[in-house]
């Protein structure tokens, strides 16, 4: 009886010690991870800040004024004029009639093939 009780007490004590030690180790690890996480968060915040500044710089570099100056200086591009936009149907094809002939002959050939398959 006494032996059982003693063993139980010893076991209880040992388990408590293990749990306490385990918790201590866990806390240490979590502490380290938290420090790492905090560092990562700081880096992310810093990166976001830098990206924010870079976006502002990009916006500044893309102002219409600056792009116009660059286009005038290097690309010699002019504004698009409505007259430059031509309707597709208005475009004249040199071999328009021959193209129609090809298209109709292709159609006839297709019909023959379908009949043959049947």
């Amino acid at each position: 009886m006494i032996n059982t009780k003693t063993a139980f007490m010893a076991l209880w004590f040992t388990l408590t010690c293990i749990v306490i030690f385990g918790c201590f180790v866990l806390k240490n690890q979590v502490h380290d991870l938290e420090a790492e996480l905090s560092k990562i968060n700081q880096n992310i915040a810093s990166d976001i800040r830098n990206i924010h500044i870079l976006k502002a710089e990009w916006g500044k570099l893309n102002t219409p004024d600056r792009l116009r100056k660059l286009a005038t200086e290097y690309a010699s591009l002019n504004k698009i004029n409505a007259k430059q936009i031509i309707n597709y149907d208005a475009l004249p094809f040199e071999n328009e009639s021959s193209q129609i002939k090809i298209a109709t002959s292709d159609k006839a050939h297709l019909k023959q093939l379908v009949k043959a398959e049947r």
Partner: peptide
């Protein structure tokens, strides 16, 4: 208390 202190 010991357990509580050890927790994160």
């Amino acid at each position: 208390k010991v357990i509580a202190v050890c927790l994160p």
